[in-house]
Each structure stands twice: as structure tokens, then as C-alpha cells.
Design a binder for these strands. Structure first.
Lengths: 218, 218
DNA sequence: TTTATTTTCCCCGAATTCGGGGATTTACTA
DNA sequence: TAGTAAATCCCCGAATTCGGGGAAAATAAA
């Protein structure tokens, strides 16, 4: 008996290709595909899925809300989240909301099928990176009281590097940072390279996002 | 440069076969193999591993204690636990102790090598069943006091613009965003111009900072 | 006093972003 | 039905960032 899969994804193209992939694979069957979750309950009752594939980034009500509703009304149905990014917040929220799996949109077709089976069988497939984040949530449960300085991981940035990063977060260009810190443009570049290396990022935007989200500066 | 692996396992046979498997695979290298952890610190200092494979069930001091010691003295080294059973207690304890991966002894050789790489690269490979248990630990304490206040000002961004901005916050380049959203590079540029206008910013970094700080995107 | 680490500066070529235009299609609304 | 907003796509040229080098002085640590 085939595993019935219902998909919620606003990306028409992806939705179609998933439809073809899943429905065309023996042992699987598409129960329904929907571009949004505005009729979530009704859609599920109509399609009667064993497993739900839910895009996390959808306009309007997003996938996190979606999974909450699903688990509330259909606790038996396992929901696998699909996302473009391995965003810390999303991972955590999705899991707390009751998601059973968490895979990337870039996952290969064959692996997607595997994951559907695993979810159906009660497992929780997730990418190693997501898994690491999940473990991280468990490993740092003892930090409710103080939240002031003594920021655990500042990635070993030097003072100068933090200063430069701080400028970056404030929207300054390399040239402006050079001016601000009384150093040359090339020196700013040197610091940036080091910062990228230490933060494991490759662009200004990533650096800024990480700096803010992990409170490395300010 | 090969990944250096050190193994602690009291089962001589398994130890040997792992030795052969890992040392015989390109890109891997056995740094040391030990039947117990009575000289854990010294053994690690001597073998200088990138990744440690630790059996969870060992006579005397067990793997849980082992991983605690490792993470205390060598926080950078990633430890992957190997176990015969997916015992709830063990899984939980091992993770809290700092293990980065958790695989079964029945895992196939090729998958073991994959897992070593994943752990080395900062991921956390684990079997779907273990993953489900881990998620269970997170899902049971359902405390969500942090309800962010409804910040109304979203600068009148359209759905598409929010989507693009969200990509930006995740560190994607224009080209990558185009790919992600199934639109052309030029369209991304158009959206970006609008976003800059609406947010009153002039660069990616400013946009990202504003988006995060004012919670314009999720 | 060696040995790191930090901070500083430079070059080249490739890739990416930015500003300022213009244009078409679709869809909603006054 | 005309008008507006949203979403799509294109061009040019200038500015900026990025990767991968190298190098040297000033501190800090061993």
C-alpha cells in the first residue's frame, strides 16, 4: 500500500516536480498538492495523507503555523518541513511546533523519497547541519539567568575585527570603515578576510546576519 | 589532507575492521585505536585526531564519561558515538555530554565514512530513529514565553519583496536569489531597488541589519 | 629571545552590486 | 474603463566587493 503524501508549497515549479517525482515512484502516491495553507484542515481531510511535506517559507501564514495546526488536529500525521535555508530560528520553531523531519530544498530526489519513508516509519530525517543545530539546543540548556556580556562564542575575533564588523553592521562600506577607523581600505579588506574566515561566511550580508543574530557585536 | 580518526572501542574485532575500513579509504587516516579510555587524554594528545569514534558501551568508564572528558579538554574535536542499541537514556546523555553524532554499530561501512566526513565538517549525522528521540526531548518542554510584540511597520513591502529580503538576510547573492525565486537576476535587482527605497537604505548590509533588527522578515 | 598573534598595507583580476534609466504584463480598484 | 500597483525583464557604466596571493611592523606570549 502506497504512502500517501500531501504537499504544501507556494512554488509552483517545485510543487509540480515533487508531484511527478513522488507520484511516479512505486510505493508512493500524491494525495494532494496545495500552494498555500489557507484551507489546511479541509485540504488534509480531503486528501487523507500519511505524510505531509510542508514548505516553511510561504507568503501569508507560514509553514511553522501550518505544522502547529496539523499536529493539533491530526497528531498522527507526520510532517516533514522543507526549507531553503538552515535557519536557526526556523529549525527550532519547526521542531517545537511538532515537525518530524527537516530537509533542504536542495535535497536530491532519491533522498527525498527515502526521507518520506523514514518519516512515515516514525523516524526523523534531517540534514547533518540541522541535526547539529538541534543538538545545540539540547546542549545549551543552562543559560536562562544572565544574558549580559560574557557572550559564549565570539568566534575569537580580535578587538579590531569586532570594530570593523560593528561598522559593517551599521551599514558602512569598506571605504567608510577605513575612514571611521583611521586605517586604509586595504587594511579593512584584510580584516574582512579574517572575519569571513572566522565566521565561516563569504559575504557581507552573511557576516552582518550572523553578527546580529548571534550578538557578536553591539 | 586526510581526516584523522581515533577510535575507542573494547570490541577487538570491530576495532580492527573499522581500522581497516577507515585507514584503507582515501581521505581518511587512522590516528589511533584504543580498547578503553583509561588513558583518554594522553591517547588523544598522542594521536591528534580530527574526529573521535567512541563506543558507548565499554567496561569501566563508559563512552558517556569519555565524551565529557574529551569535550572538556579538546572542545574542538568532534566525537561520534557508536552504539549497539538506540537506548533513550544513552542518546540523551551522550548528546548532553557533547557528542556530535550518534550512529548504530549496524551502520554500513560506506555510511560510516560519510558520517565521519559529516561530523568533521560540523554536521551531526544520526539515524532517523535517534533523531526522532532527540526531537522528542525538545518537543516535550513546550515553553514559549518569548512572544515578540506585533511590530506593525513592515515598510509596506510586498510579499515578493519580503521574500527577496529574506533571501538576502540568509546571505544569498542576487544570482542565488534569482535561482531561489525562479526569476531573473534583473528582476531581483528591480525588487532590491524597491526594497532600498522603502527601507531607506543604500546597501545590502544596511538592508540586512534593518530587516533583522526590526524583524521585518522571519 | 624566539615564537605567535595582531595590525597594518599592497596588487591583480574576477565577480557582484548600484544608480538610473526604460518597458511589458497582469491584476486590482476607483 | 482608466489608473495604479505588483511583478517581470533589459541595458549601461561606475563603484564596490571578493579571493588569493604577499609582506612588514608592532605586540603579546612562551
Amino acid at each position: 500500500m502506497a504512502i500517501r503524501v500531501t504537499i504544501f508549497d507556494d512554488n509552483k515549479k517545485l510543487l509540480d516536480s515533487l508531484d511527478i517525482l513522488i507520484d511516479g515512484s512505486p510505493g508512493f502516491q500524491i494525495a494532494g498538492t496545495f500552494p498555500n495553507i489557507s484551507n489546511l484542515i479541509a485540504d488534509i481531510e480531503k486528501s487523507q495523507p500519511d505524510v505531509i511535506l510542508m514548505d516553511i517559507e510561504m507568503p501569508g501564514m507560514n509553514g511553522i503555523e501550518g505544522v502547529k495546526i496539523v499536529k493539533k488536529h491530526f497528531p498522527k500525521i507526520n510532517v516533514m518541513m522543507q526549507t531553503a535555508f538552515e535557519n536557526d530560528e526556523h529549525v527550532f520553531e519547526a521542531i517545537c511546533a511538532g515537525a518530524s523531519g527537516y530537509i533542504l530544498k536542495s535535497t536530491s530526489p532519491s533522498r527525498i523519497l527515502e526521507c518520506i519513508v523514514e518519516v512515515y516509519q516514525g523516524g526523523s530525517p534531517m540534514s547533518p547541519t540541522v541535526a547539529r543545530k538541534v543538538l545545540g539546543f539540547l546542549q545549551t540548556p543552562k543559560k536562562e539567568p544572565n544574558l549580559s556580556n560574557e557572550n559564549k562564542d565570539d568566534y575569537n575575533l580580535t578587538n579590531r575585527e569586532k570594530e570593523v564588523l560593528s561598522c559593517l553592521v551599521n551599514g558602512l562600506s569598506y571605504k567608510m570603515i577605513a575612514d571611521q577607523c583611521n586605517i586604509t581600505y586595504e587594511t579593512v579588506r584584510s580584516h574582512m578576510k579574517k572575519i569571513y574566515e572566522k565566521l565561516h561566511v563569504v559575504s557581507m550580508t552573511e557576516a552582518v546576519a550572523k553578527a546580529i543574530n548571534q550578538k557578536i557585536v553591539m
